[in-house]
Amino acid sequence: MPVPPNHVLVFSLLLFAVGVLGVLTRRNAIVILMSIELMMNAANINFIMFSQRLHDLAGQVFSVFTIAVAAGEVAVGLAIVLALFRNRDTVYVDEVHIMKG
């Protein structure tokens, strides 16, 4: 029946590392936002795992809050991507090196 907690931790660690790699290697701002979502999911897995392990519901409640924060972050981030595309005609982050509009 049980899943070893170490393996859940390693799973979330690998998911987080994939997110880090996505943020570091991709130029497309939309894919970078997706990678940030992957990292937040990895943190959520840790919350759930420790909530289960310590018999405390606070971890699950916190993961609900994390999901709410992720939703707001994606909304604002994608709005920034849209504004960037309107003003600079690009979504590549390495082509945006001057902040002054």
């Binding site: 707001g72 909304a75 604002v76 504004a83």
Partner: peptide
């Protein structure tokens, strides 16, 4: 926070 994010997204976009 969600309300502020929604208003911010509308203003930015």
């Amino acid at each position: 926070l969600l309300l502020v994010a929604m208003i911010g997204a509308i203003v930015l976009a």
